[in-house]
């Protein structure tokens, strides 16, 4: 079922809050449109970095994600939800979450149900590894707030988990105040972050 919420994100150049729409249950057409808008910006950046022979660590780490494939693979599955954040006629961020099959790891909530953020990314023009001056901020914060709200709605009390790409670790550690449980060898050695009920409540407060 599709649901829309009116939300706000930050225009970085002016610091102003601008209107955006959070869409729970985005359509294939919307995902295709987003990919068409995102892909050339990302491809251009990768081309530039290649030409400059920049080290791999400076490359955007999610350069080759294909959201259309993720959408197609999870379409119709009750456990998966794809959300989009739209503003200024363009998709500013996308997130795929799964609400079954992932268990919490922090001792105080071990084995309890959670919302697991399978994939989340901001549009390339909002991403500091892609452009010098990112256009919109708060995309990550609004999407994480949405994941927490989803966790509350599902009865998981705000519990949340995800594997961060290295460049985003600071965002989850500092800006979202999630617990860092260290590198997970089962998932490409990415660091695993989890949010407790208390941390989730604090984030939404």
């Amino acid at each position: 079922m599709r649901e829309e919420s009116a939300v706000l994100i930050k225009e970085r150049a002016t610091g102003r809050l601008v209107e955006a729409t959070l869409i729970d249950g985005i359509t294939r057409v919307e995902v295709e449109e987003a990919e068409e808008q995102w892909r050339p910006v990302m491809a251009q950046r990768i081309e530039d970095l290649r030409a400059r022979q920049a080290p791999r660590s400076k490359w955007p780490e999610h350069g080759h994600w294909d959201w259309r494939k993720k959408h197609a693979a999870t379409q119709g599955l009750l456990a998966y939800r794809m959300l989009g954040l739209r503003s200024d006629g363009r998709m500013q961020g996308l997130m795929l979450v799964v609400t079954a099959g992932h268990a919490c790891r922090i001792a105080e909530q071990k084995n309890k149900e959670m919302v697991y953020v399978d994939y989340v990314a901001t549009a390339p023009w909002n991403s500091p590894s892609v452009v010098e001056e990112p256009q919109y901020g708060m995309v990550g914060r609004v999407l994480i707030a949405a994941a927490i709200q989803l966790s509350l709605d599902e009865g998981f009390k705000g519990r949340l988990g995800l594997h961060s790409l290295p460049q985003a670790e600071e965002f989850y550690r500092k800006q979202c105040a999630m617990t860092d449980l260290g590198a997970d060898e089962k998932k490409q050695n990415l660091r695993y972050f989890e949010m407790t009920i208390a941390q989730a409540a604090e984030f939404l407060r």
């Binding site: 009750l78 456990a79 609400t99 099959g101 309890k112 998981f156 009390k157």
Partner: peptide, 23 residues
Amino acid sequence: KQKDLSKTAVIRQALKLYQMVDV
């Protein structure tokens, strides 16, 4: 009790997993 969920939530989790496995 184990999962700290309501009865409805447990049934919904079961359905999601069953569907995922079936697919």
